[in-house]
Structures are given as structure tokens and as C-alpha cells.
């Protein structure tokens, strides 16, 4: 219930209506949305029980390594009610054609694979919020100093998932494990998306806000 309350409000992409759709416009819109989402994710992380008691340095290392996973998991969850469309925001939904224009066909295909997995499992909101917190706690950053404290954070959230499943889905004893087994695909997808935006940064054609750049460079 704590995680349900900590869930942030929806953001809007607000693409510039005066600019025609193009690859650069799509990337500009997504980078701007991601920059604003990052601010929200950072304050969300502070509401995860145990996160704020970590050292500032460990909090930074964790967020720098998992922020894209948190972003993608949110996008995947928002896309659950749609057919083969990626919901970056309620006002920014990419179908196949738009994905092609935006140069995101392959990436959106990866995200769709994740969405299909969660769809087939009928992922619930409670499971989504625990999984998102677990993705945060599951950082494998080599820069973490107090590994034990991070492990404890992981254990508490893992426990929450097991508790939820044993009370809500007792007829599906392997459901918690099944959910955890989606985390590798989430990481793989997030890494691909990071690569994509890092290359865009190198090209230098898309304006990027400071926080987004800072996290991309980390």
C-alpha cells in the first residue's frame, strides 16, 4: 500500500503541434519527456522504504544504473491496455507507422515483447509497483559501497512480492518467480534504449536537457 501511494501522477509529452512529425521531433519530444520523468523518478525513489537511508553516493549509483529500466517499465505498464502500441504518455502513443517515422521500430518491438509478457500474465498494478521498486533495488552497479544495505532493501521488496502473491494469487505459486524472470528482458531493453539515445547525443541533432544528459553520460 505504501508503494501504491508513492506512485507518481501521469506526465504528458505535449509534442509541439506547429512542427511536422519527423525523427528529430519525435526524439526531441521523448528526450524532453524523459527529462521530466527523471525528476519524478528521483523523488519517487526517495519514497521507497529504505532507499533514503542509503548513503547519498549509493543512492546516486543506483539511480544512475537503473533509471532507464524504471522508465521502460512504466511505459510497458501504460501500454498494457493497447494493442501493439507503445504508450510513452497518454498524449504520445506510437503505433507501428509512427515508430518507423521516429526510427524506433526495433526499440518499440523490444518493449512490445515485454508488454506481451505482462499482458499474458495479466499484470496487476500492485505487482507493477513492487516490480518497479525491485528493479531499483536490483541495481548491479559496481559502485555500490554498502552492498549489504542494498541487499536488505531487495529482501524487503522481494518479501512484499511474495506476500502479495500468496494472498492474492495463491492458485499460481510460481507467479512471483515468473515476474522476477521478466527483469532480464527489462534490463536488456533498457540497455538498447540507452544505446539509442547515447548515439543520438553523439549525433548532436536533438536538444537534450541537462538532467537527461547527465544521466545518459553516467
Amino acid at each position: 500500500s505504501h508503494l501504491m501511494v508513492a506512485e507518481p501522477e501521469k506526465l504528458y509529452a505535449m509534442p509541439d503541434p506547429t512542427v511536422p512529425d519527423s525523427y528529430v521531433k519525435a526524439m526531441t519530444t521523448l528526450c524532453d519527456l524523459a527529462d521530466r520523468e527523471l525528476v519524478v523518478i528521483i523523488s519517487w525513489a526517495k519514497n521507497i522504504p529504505g532507499f533514503s537511508s542509503l548513503s547519498l553516493s549509493d543512492q546516486m549509483s543506483i539511480l544512475q544504473s537503473v533509471w532507464m529500466e524504471i522508465l521502460i517499465l512504466g511505459v510497458a505498464y501504460r501500454s498494457l491496455a493497447f494493442d501493439d502500441e507503445i504508450v510513452y504518455a497518454q498524449d504520445y502513443i506510437m503505433d507501428e507507422e509512427f515508430s518507423r517515422t521516429a526510427g524506433m521500430l526495433d526499440l518499440n518491438g523490444c518493449i512490445l515483447q515485454l508488454v506481451r509478457k505482462y499482458k499474458s500474465m495479466k499484470l496487476e498494478k500492485e505487482e507493477f509497483v513492487i516490480l518497479k521498486a525491485l528493479a531499483l533495488a536490483n541495481s548491479d552497479s559496481v559502485h555500490i559501497e554498502d552492498v549489504e544495505a542494498v541487499q536488505k532493501l531487495q529482501d524487503v521488496l522481494h518479501e512484499a512480492l511474495i506476500d502479495f502473491e500468496s494472498s492474492k494469487q495463491p492458485e499460481e505459486p510460481r507467479r512471483a518467480g515468473k515476474l522476477l524472470m521478466t527483469l532480464p528482458l527489462l534490463r536488456q531493453t533498457a540497455n538498447k534504449v540507452l544505446h539509442h539515445f547515447y548515439n543520438i547525443k553523439l549525433e548532436g541533432k536533438v536538444p537534450m536537457h541537462k538532467l537527461f544528459l547527465e544521466m545518459l553520460e553516467a
Binding site: S43, K46, L56, Q64, L211, A218
Partner: peptide
Amino acid sequence: KEKHKILHRLLQDST
């Protein structure tokens, strides 16, 4: 840490 000053500041903000 100087390179990551925005993240640092946002984590330190109390809000």
C-alpha cells in the same frame, strides 16, 4: 560527483 550535480541536488532536496 561534480559531474552529477543535478542528481545530487534532487536527492538532497527534502520535497
